[in-house]
């Protein structure tokens, strides 16, 4: 198969970028999207042109490293998959394919299609954990957790932290990411002691980092490779409201 690529090239954060045209020639239909780019890159290297920089690691949809917007869709067409799980047979022979980086003020471009998502790490650092000093834990079965709750927590915990939600959101909002962690930990009995401070600190850090707010378009849910439900955002809103009231009451004495 052959494709015409329009690829965003940008030397670094401080220079302007632009689209460049490339031809992807003789691509096997069984190749993955990233393997197609590998082939294009090998061709570029052979022609003494700098290869296109893009992130990937596991190449099986779990590490969350790959991060392309293909034809205007974060992780490309198709439900519940990452860019590395996208295969060329999905495209038409001869098709023009637009490839852009995840775009958000909070995800500055590092080079070409690579963005800096450390903002997500900072949000987790602000409270996305349960403090449990190593070695101090009680027996694992001392706290039974109903299967329904445990399963729901797992659904939220499945987030791979790729950032597609913020990339797809017209407001570059990180709410789905934050909601997933808040719900995962907030649903579990172990997560209760820090529930108030967790949501407060994570949301305020999210705001400070320059993510937008949620206007309930659900673009995030549509592209999420882990199929995290946007209803977790509602849970986040509720948790945040409750935490704010608690905070207010505590401040008044």
């Amino acid at each position: 198969m052959n494709f015409k690529l329009k690829v965003w090239r940008q030397q670094n954060e401080n220079t302007a970028g632009q689209f460049r045209d490339y031809e992807a020639i003789n691509i096997p239909a069984e190749a993955s999207f990233l393997e197609m780019l590998d082939i294009v890159n090998e061709g570029l290297i052979a022609r003494q042109e700098e290869p296109i920089a893009f992130d990937s690691d596991c190449r099986e949809g779990i590490c969350g490293m790959c991060s392309l917007v293909v034809n205007g869709i974060a992780h490309g067409p198709g439900k519940a998959k990452t860019t590395c799980q996208l295969y060329m047979r999905r495209f038409q022979d001869g098709e023009t394919i637009w490839i852009e980086p995840f775009r958000a003020a909070a995800f500055p471009i590092v080079k070409d299609l690579i963005v800096d998502r450390s903002a997500f790490d900072r949000i987790i650092q602000a409270g996305g954990y349960i403090t449990a000093r190593t070695g101090s834990a009680p027996d694992a079965n001392s706290i039974p957790i109903g299967k329904t709750v445990a399963d729901l927590a797992m659904e939220a915990a499945a987030c791979i932290g790729c950032g597609a939600c913020a990339a797809a959101c017209p407001n570059s909002s990180a709410m789905l990411f934050v909601a997933a962690k808040i719900s995962h930990l907030g649903l579990l009995p172990q997560g209760q002691p820090e529930r108030t401070s967790r949501v407060r600190n994570m949301v305020r850090t999210m705001d400070a980092l320059g993510f937008g707010s949620c206007t309930n378009h659900y673009e995030c849910e549509a592209v999420c490779p882990a199929e995290i439900s946007a209803t977790f955002i509602s849970r986040l809103n509720r948790d945040y409201a409750v935490a704010s009231i608690r905070e207010g009451l505590a401040a008044r004495g």
Binding site: C214, N216, S229, A230, T231, I233, S234, R235, L236, N237, R238, D239, A241
Partner: peptide, 8 residues
């Protein structure tokens, strides 16, 4: 959704 009443 905004007022936190929504769920699956």
């Amino acid at each position: 959704q905004t007022l936190g009443i929504n769920n699956q």
